[in-house]
């Protein structure tokens, strides 16, 4: 049992971190009333930027490379998401359509530039990915230490800490209250002097930042290079986590951890008694089936923010 936990939990944290980060972005965007199907594309952008930056600057920056790579990917993700913000907030475009376009555009740009710069469909492996570490002191605690703090990626804890930060920002600060108000009832918020467009822009850009961060963490921990098939569905799984977590940062984190568990079980299940007979396909589709069940109200009803997906046009009723 102990051995099983020691092999599962680091894997769960490892698979969940990118999902948690991207899902937090989804929470910000959707809480402000902008549906973000483009999370997948934002992750692609993040993964692409993280890998390319890492490859280019690893000689100069040495062991700091992965950290600076994810910061750069965060910034690029934020900038890229402005396209979605402009289309869906300023031009009243259908937010789902704009999100679909973001996904196509990110993949197109990523692979196009990879081919132009590297002359082939995928980049080389990076020299400076994230490595597992053991956290000093904490890993010496009996039982808990080896399970949670030995051989883990620091980025996993970064993701969990950021989830709590996001919760604090959304629920304990005036900024968060305003952001949520804009997503529930933009006209009322506007009447109270909250700038609806500005809040939505900020929220979408935050989702781009988190998506970029999530994508780069995925690329630099799990795959170590970039190609057209680096990000296949993780963004949509993060979107599922947003909904399964009921549009709450900590809920989304819990859902992402759970989906990470399902994903890692499908990888390590062969070594665990009980689970080795469960066909892999059930674990693969579990996140999606559960999300549908949650939406249908079988696992506690998931209610979207009231004005989610509706462009706000000043002066309309």
């Amino acid at each position: 049992m102990f051995d099983a936990l020691q092999s599962i939990i680091p894997t769960v944290l490892f698979y969940s971190a990118p999902l948690i980060l991207t899902a937090l972005g989804g929470v910000f965007s959707e809480r402000s009333g902008v549906v973000n199907i483009g999370l997948e594309g934002l992750m692609v952008m993040g993964a692409f930027t993280g890998i390319v930056f890492n490859l280019t600057f690893s000689d100069v920056l040495g062991s700091w490379t992965p950290w600076i790579s994810i910061v750069v990917a965060t910034i690029v993700g934020a900038i890229f998401s402005i396209i979605h913000a402009v289309a869906s907030v300023s031009f009243n475009a259908n937010q789902v359509v704009s999100g679909v376009a973001i996904n196509m555009l990110a993949l197109g740009i990523g692979v196009y530039l990879t081919k132009v710069w590297y002359g082939k469909g995928q980049t080389d492996m990076v020299d400076q990915p994230f490595y597992t570490t053991s956290i000093p002191v904490l890993s010496d605690i009996p039982i808990i230490g080896p399970i949670f703090f030995e051989g883990i990626y620091v980025t996993s804890y970064l993701a969990i800490i950021l989830a709590f930060v996001a919760w604090y920002v959304l629920y304990k600060t005036p900024f968060g209250l305003r952001l949520r108000a804009v997503g529930e009832h933009p006209m009322a918020a506007d009447t109270n002097g909250i700038k609806v467009y500005k809040m939505r822009y900020i929220a979408v850009i935050l989702s781009g930042a988190f998506g970029g961060l999530g994508g780069s963490v995925f690329a630099l921990t799990i795959v170590s290079n970039f190609s057209g098939s680096t990000i296949v569905g993780q963004g949509f799984m993060a979107l599922a986590a947003v909904i399964f977590g009921k549009w709450h940062p900590l809920g989304a984190m819990g859902a992402a951890l759970f989906f990470g568990l399902a994903q890692s079980l499908s990888v390590v299940s062969a070594g665990i008694p009980l689970l080795e007979n469960v066909p892999q396909v059930y674990l693969l589709i579990a996140p999606y089936v559960l999300t549908i069940l949650a939406l249908a109200g079988f696992i506690g009803r998931a209610e979207a923010p009231q004005a989610n997906g509706e462009p706000y046009i000043k002066g309309s009723r």
């Binding site: 289309a87 679909v100 555009l105 993949l107």
Partner: peptide, 14 residues
């Protein structure tokens, strides 16, 4: 690269 067409299609959608 063929991906240019994907970019063009995405932009047309926008």
């Amino acid at each position: 690269p063929t991906e240019l067409v994907d970019i063009i299609i995405a932009l047309i959608i926008f």
